[in-house]
Amino acid sequence: NQESVVAAQLIPINTALTLVMMTTRVVSPTGIPAEDIPRLISMQVNQVVPMGTTLMPDMVKGYA
Results as ranks from 00 to 15, higher is better:
14 N>L: 05
29 P>H: 09
55 L>F: 10
56 M>D: 13
61 K>Q: 07
53 T>A: 09
61 K>D: 07
8 A>V: 06
3 E>N: 06
29 P>G: 12
29 P>W: 03
35 E>L: 05
1 N>E: 15
41 I>M: 05
3 E>V: 05
64 A>E: 11
39 R>E: 05
56 M>N: 08
17 L>S: 00
5 V>D: 00
58 D>S: 15
4 S>Q: 03
45 V>D: 00
61 K>I: 07
38 P>V: 09
3 E>C: 12
28 S>R: 02
40 L>M: 07
22 M>Q: 01
26 V>Q: 15
50 P>M: 14
14 N>W: 07
23 T>F: 06
51 M>E: 11
21 M>T: 05
59 M>P: 01
29 P>I: 14
29 P>S: 15
43 M>V: 11
29 P>N: 10
18 T>M: 03
12 P>E: 12
48 V>E: 14
5 V>E: 01
1 N>Q: 12
61 K>G: 08
32 I>C: 06
26 V>K: 03
14 N>T: 04
5 V>W: 01
33 P>L: 07
49 V>I: 15
30 T>V: 15
48 V>F: 09
24 T>W: 11
57 P>D: 09
20 V>K: 13
54 T>R: 03
17 L>F: 02
10 L>C: 15
7 A>L: 02
19 L>D: 08
58 D>M: 14
11 I>A: 00
11 I>F: 01
30 T>E: 14
6 V>I: 07
26 V>L: 12
50 P>N: 14
7 A>D: 01
47 Q>D: 12
11 I>M: 05
45 V>A: 07
31 G>M: 03
8 A>E: 09
11 I>Y: 01
31 G>E: 02
18 T>N: 07
51 M>H: 13
8 A>T: 07
37 I>C: 05
3 E>G: 03
39 R>Y: 11
3 E>T: 05
18 T>S: 10
36 D>P: 00
11 I>C: 02
43 M>W: 04
61 K>M: 10
44 Q>R: 09
24 T>L: 05
11 I>P: 00
18 T>P: 00
21 M>A: 11
16 A>K: 12
57 P>M: 13
18 T>K: 12
31 G>D: 01
58 D>V: 13
19 L>G: 08
61 K>E: 05
7 A>P: 01
41 I>Y: 05
38 P>G: 13
16 A>E: 12
6 V>L: 08
52 G>F: 15
14 N>S: 12
11 I>W: 01
32 I>S: 01
15 T>R: 04
46 N>H: 11
6 V>R: 02
50 P>E: 10
35 E>N: 14
62 G>H: 11
15 T>H: 05
5 V>C: 03
4 S>I: 02
48 V>R: 08
49 V>K: 00
56 M>T: 12
40 L>T: 02
11 I>D: 00
19 L>A: 13
5 V>A: 10
3 E>Y: 05
50 P>W: 09
34 A>K: 10
9 Q>I: 04
30 T>A: 11
54 T>D: 01
56 M>Y: 10
3 E>D: 12
36 D>R: 12
16 A>I: 06
43 M>S: 11
59 M>C: 06
10 L>D: 11
25 R>C: 07
6 V>Y: 03
46 N>I: 09
55 L>G: 00
26 V>R: 02
62 G>K: 07
41 I>H: 03
1 N>K: 03
2 Q>D: 15
35 E>R: 05
47 Q>T: 10
20 V>S: 10
24 T>N: 09
2 Q>C: 12
19 L>M: 06
10 L>E: 09
56 M>I: 14
63 Y>F: 13
17 L>P: 02
14 N>Q: 04
15 T>L: 03
49 V>T: 04
56 M>S: 08
36 D>S: 14
21 M>D: 15
8 A>I: 10
38 P>E: 06
6 V>M: 05
9 Q>T: 13
64 A>T: 15
10 L>Y: 09
37 I>R: 13
63 Y>P: 06
21 M>C: 03
8 A>M: 14
45 V>F: 01
51 M>S: 06
48 V>L: 14
62 G>C: 15
28 S>W: 03
63 Y>C: 13
27 V>S: 11
30 T>S: 13
46 N>M: 05
32 I>H: 01
51 M>D: 12
1 N>C: 12
14 N>I: 03
19 L>F: 11
28 S>V: 09
10 L>F: 07
39 R>G: 10
19 L>Q: 13
47 Q>K: 15
32 I>K: 01
32 I>L: 05
10 L>S: 11
7 A>W: 02
30 T>N: 14
49 V>H: 00
4 S>V: 02
41 I>V: 11
2 Q>I: 12
23 T>N: 11
13 I>K: 06
1 N>P: 15
12 P>D: 06
9 Q>P: 01
33 P>Y: 09
44 Q>S: 08
8 A>D: 14
33 P>D: 08
7 A>Q: 01
32 I>P: 01
54 T>Y: 02
26 V>W: 06
56 M>H: 06
26 V>H: 05
48 V>N: 15
59 M>H: 09
35 E>G: 07
31 G>V: 10
50 P>L: 10
35 E>F: 08
59 M>V: 04
25 R>G: 15
59 M>K: 02
62 G>Q: 06
48 V>Q: 14
43 M>Q: 08
19 L>N: 12
38 P>D: 05
9 Q>V: 05
25 R>T: 09
3 E>S: 04
24 T>E: 13
57 P>G: 13
61 K>H: 07
42 S>A: 14
35 E>M: 12
6 V>H: 04
46 N>T: 10
14 N>K: 08
59 M>Q: 06
11 I>G: 00
32 I>T: 02
52 G>V: 02
62 G>W: 06
45 V>G: 00
14 N>G: 07
46 N>P: 02
32 I>G: 00
63 Y>K: 04
2 Q>E: 15
49 V>C: 15
32 I>V: 11
17 L>H: 00
56 M>Q: 13
57 P>V: 13
22 M>I: 13
16 A>V: 10
44 Q>D: 04
38 P>N: 10
19 L>I: 07
24 T>D: 03
32 I>M: 03
9 Q>G: 05
57 P>C: 15
9 Q>F: 03
40 L>N: 00
22 M>V: 12
38 P>C: 04
30 T>R: 02
12 P>Y: 04
55 L>C: 02
24 T>F: 12
37 I>H: 03
52 G>M: 14
46 N>F: 06
30 T>Q: 13
21 M>S: 04
37 I>W: 04
50 P>T: 12
21 M>H: 07
23 T>V: 12
42 S>N: 05
54 T>V: 12
36 D>T: 07
42 S>R: 07
44 Q>H: 09
44 Q>G: 06
44 Q>Y: 06
33 P>K: 08
30 T>K: 04
29 P>R: 03
4 S>M: 03
63 Y>G: 04
10 L>N: 13
26 V>N: 13
17 L>E: 00
9 Q>N: 07
60 V>L: 11
2 Q>M: 12
8 A>Q: 06
